Simulated assay, not measured.
Amino acid sequence: MLVDSHCHLDFPDFAAELDAIVARAKAAGVARLVTISTRVKKHAQLIAIAEKFPEVFCSVGTHPHHADEEMDIDAGALIAIAQHPKVVAIGEAGLDYHYDTGPRENQAKSFRQHIEAARKTGLPLVIHARDADADMAQILKEEAARGPFKAVLHCFTAGRELAFTAVELGHYIGFTGILTFKNSENLRQIAKDLPADRLLIETDSPYLAPVPYRGKRCEPAYVAETAKMLASVRGVSPAEIARQTTENFHRLFNKVPQAIEIAA
Score class of each variant (00 low, 15 high):
I115K: 12
V34L: 11
A25C: 07
L125H: 08
R39G: 05
I79P: 04
T101R: 15
F57L: 04
D13R: 13
F57P: 00
A16L: 12
V126H: 05
R112C: 03
E51Y: 08
D72V: 09
V88T: 04
L78P: 04
V87E: 01
F53N: 02
I79S: 08
V126K: 10
A82I: 05
A16S: 14
K120W: 00
A23Y: 11
A15C: 11
I73K: 11
I21D: 01
V30I: 11
T38E: 01
L18C: 07
Q45F: 10
A80C: 03
R39E: 09
H66S: 02
F53T: 04
A50T: 02
V40C: 02
R39T: 09
D96I: 12
A89M: 04
A75Q: 10
D100G: 11
S59N: 08
A31L: 12
G122M: 08
A20I: 10
D96C: 12
K26V: 09
T101D: 10
Q113M: 13
A67D: 01
Y99C: 07
A27L: 13
A80H: 13
A89K: 09
L78Y: 04
A28L: 13
A93F: 02
Q45L: 15
G122A: 01
I90W: 00
A89T: 05
Q107L: 04
D100Y: 11
L33F: 05
Y97W: 07
V30A: 05
K52F: 03
H84C: 00
L125R: 14
H114E: 00
A67P: 07
H84K: 13
A67K: 11
S37W: 07
D100K: 15
L123K: 13
L33V: 07
I90E: 02
T101E: 10
S37A: 15
R24W: 02
A23Q: 14
M71L: 15
I81G: 06
L33P: 05
G91N: 12
A77D: 06
E116M: 12
P64T: 13
A48D: 14
D96P: 13
L78N: 01
V22F: 12
A118W: 06
Q107V: 11
D74F: 15
E116S: 14
A93I: 09
E105Y: 13
H66Q: 08
L78T: 03
Q113T: 12
V22E: 07
I36N: 03
E55W: 09
K86N: 03
G76H: 11
D19Q: 13
R104Y: 00
T38M: 10
A118E: 04
Q83C: 11
A67R: 13
A15H: 15
G76Y: 06
L123G: 01
I115W: 07
Y97L: 11
E55Y: 12
V40D: 02
E55F: 09
D13I: 11
I49D: 01
H114I: 03
D74C: 14
C58G: 00
